[in-house]
Simulated assay, not measured.
Amino acid sequence: MVSVAKLTLTVPPLLSRYHVDRADELRADPAALDTAWPTAEVLRVDPRGRFALDGTALVFARGHEIAAERPVGAVLLGRVDGALVFALRVEKFDGADLRMRGHLLSPVDSALIAEALGILNWHASAGFSPVDGGPTVPGRAGWVRSTESGAEEFPRTDAAMITLVHDGADQVLLGRQHQWPERLFSLFAGFVEPGESLEQCVARELREEVGIEVDDIAYVASQPWPFPRSLMLGFTARADREAQLTFHDGEIAEARWFSRLQVREALAAGDWSTDAPDAPLLLPNSISIARGIVEAWAGVD
């Protein structure tokens, strides 16, 4: 088979459009952090990942409004427009959810909440060391956890691939998970396993999920996906439209080939939250890299 042209995105995925200055040089300088705390911006996130939103903008508190001294659990996200920004886990409150409202955020705000969710979700699961079982405490402004014995744990990011399968021409294969609404379809995704390359993961996941063999695997783009702390790596791959679909692992309830025209019509209609009872196909919203990849394949800006 002849290789097709590599797919490129006209704009980066939503959660990858702003590069946060992580201010790494301050992580080991508690005195500087303590001095900056009273006037620092603090992004509060509850255990369910909800945050305060004013229209389309994140709501920040000032450090002095939270506590007189910098809390142990405050994580330094970085520096934006000269101001330090921290993330802090707080008790449950009535806030917004990234999956539902993330597409409304600016590139700066979306990058900050993605970073905050990823690191706070790691802290929530890293209370004990896998090395010696001892309790851990945060250090370096929230970017390490250590035990009394000195065993250190660093933030973990889980790599996962997400793939658009095409036939090399005008058709794309999309899948629907069991828990999704009847008309909602998306790309195929799965976590990278130990000892596996990204391309091998793409091929394995498609074999397991829909029983097909793919070739011409090509990387497209990536984005953080803090549910709970993943990095989504976007690919395209080609498959034979005549190949029989078999749902080996039980994750996929349905998979279908759609034409480019059908995909363009679905993109124009909105997304999975759109009130379109007659739409035969609903696609993810722009918070997911899946939509950007589908738009690029469909030739929609």
Rank of each mutant, 00 (worst) to 15 (best):
F185T: 09
F185H: 13
F185Q: 03
F185I: 04
S186I: 08
S186H: 04
L187C: 12
L187K: 11
L187Y: 02
L187H: 06
F188Q: 05
F188N: 08
F188S: 06
F188V: 02
A189T: 05
A189Y: 12
A189V: 08
A189H: 03
A189K: 01
G190L: 11
F191K: 09
F191D: 14
F191Q: 15
F191Y: 08
F191H: 10
V192T: 15
V192N: 12
V192D: 11
V192H: 14
E193S: 14
E193F: 08
E193H: 11
E193G: 03
E193L: 13
E193W: 10
P194K: 13
P194S: 08
P194D: 11
G195F: 07
G195L: 06
E196N: 06
S197V: 11
L198H: 13
L198P: 04
L198W: 11
E199V: 09
Q200M: 05
Q200P: 08
Q200F: 09
C201V: 02
C201D: 08
C201Y: 11
A203Y: 07
R204T: 13
R204G: 10
E205D: 13
R207I: 05
R207S: 15
R207N: 14
R207T: 07
R207F: 13
R207A: 15
E208A: 10
E208V: 08
E208R: 11
E209N: 12
E209C: 12
E209H: 13
E209S: 14
V210M: 14
V210T: 14
G211E: 15
I212E: 09
E213D: 15
E213W: 11
E213C: 12
V214T: 03
D215C: 07
D215I: 03
D215Q: 02
D215S: 11
D216C: 09
I217Q: 03
I217A: 04
I217Y: 00
I217T: 00
I217F: 01
A218I: 01
A218Q: 00
A218C: 02
A218W: 02
Y219Q: 05
Y219K: 05
Y219L: 08
V220Y: 03
V220F: 00
A221S: 09
S222P: 01
S222G: 06
S222L: 00
S222T: 01
Q223E: 07
P224A: 04
P224R: 00
W225G: 04
W225H: 09
P226Q: 05
P226M: 02
P228Q: 10
P228Y: 11
P228M: 07
P228D: 08
R229E: 14
R229T: 09
S230H: 12
S230F: 09
S230D: 03
L231W: 02
L231A: 02
L231T: 02
L231Q: 09
L231I: 03
M232I: 02
M232N: 04
M232V: 05
M232A: 03
L233W: 04
G234A: 14
G234F: 05
G234M: 01
F235H: 13
F235T: 06
F235C: 06
F235Y: 14
A237G: 00
A237E: 07
A237R: 01
A237T: 05
A237L: 07
R238S: 00
R238K: 01
R238D: 01
